[in-house]
């Protein structure tokens, strides 16, 4: 299975980082997201909002990487929240049950408020 790179913009926000993948998140590209989350797990402030606005398609591999990220970041004392307005992704979170217990909001700021409360 040939791995492909996906562009992921990493930026600092108020006490957390924001990951903005640009492109499909599937079995071919998910390694990039996993690596980016791994770097945040190793950082001093392991909290991140993943903005899915520029991800037109996400399959179970992409969802798995996000959920794996939630678990690893929480174990490291941080959290992962998701900023998403795409119906298709939101439906996937709902169907699988992964939407429960994870902060999912239309904007990065709102999503971040969710995990800050979780941390508190």
């Amino acid at each position: 299975m040939a791995q492909q790179k996906i562009e992921i913009d990493v930026s600092d926000a108020d006490g957390y980082q924001v990951l903005r993948p640009d492109g499909d998140l599937d079995v071919y590209t998910v390694g990039s997201l996993r690596d980016a989350i791994g770097a945040i797990v190793e950082s001093d402030n392991p909290s991140v909002v993943v903005d899915l606005d520029s991800v037109p398609f996400m399959d179970s591999s992409g969802l798995g990487a996000l959920m794996g990220g939630v678990r690893r970041l929480r174990e490291a004392g941080g959290d992962l929240a998701i900023a998403c307005t795409r119906e298709q992704h939101l439906k996937l979170f709902t169907i699988t049950g992964f939407g429960e217990g994870v902060s999912i909001a239309p904007t990065v700021d709102e999503a971040a408020k969710g995990f800050k409360q979780t941390n508190a």
């Binding site: 996993r34 179970s60 798995g64 990487a65 959920m67 794996g68 939630v70 169907i95 699988t96």
Partner: peptide
């Protein structure tokens, strides 16, 4: 399995 995997 690891944290990235699940089954529906």
């Amino acid at each position: 399995t690891d944290a990235d995997s699940f089954t529906t």
